[in-house]
């Protein structure tokens, strides 16, 4: 990566982080390991931004 990226909940995971579809799936698997959750494929498809990912993880963890 050429320069550090400022992350916010609005950061788009593919465009903002420069990840292609393969890298996104690997990224998701790392998140799944770290949080001990499994994110179903249809839920992954709905995730566009880091905020979406946080909301999905909270939901799957049962955190309000």
């Amino acid at each position: 990566m050429p320069s550090p990226i400022e992350l916010s909940e609005d950061t788009n995971i593919t465009e903002g982080l420069g990840l292609d579809s393969v890298a996104v799936m690997d990224f998701v698997m790392e998140i799944e390991d770290a949080l001990d959750i499994s994110i179903p494929l249809d839920r992954i498809a709905e995730v566009k931004t880091i905020g979406d990912l946080i909301a999905t993880a909270h939901d799957l963890k049962g955190v309000a």
Binding site: M25, M29, D33, D36, I37, S38, I39, P40, L41, D42
Partner: peptide, 27 residues
């Protein structure tokens, strides 16, 4: 085929029995 049905679909790391075990434990 997985998308054509109505089941929940998750993936485990390629050829990784420990990751499969993790996924089944979570379920």
């Amino acid at each position: 085929g997985s998308r054509l049905g109505h089941a929940q679909v998750t993936r485990f790391r390629h050829n990784d029995p420990a990751d499969l075990d993790n996924r089944l434990r979570r379920l």
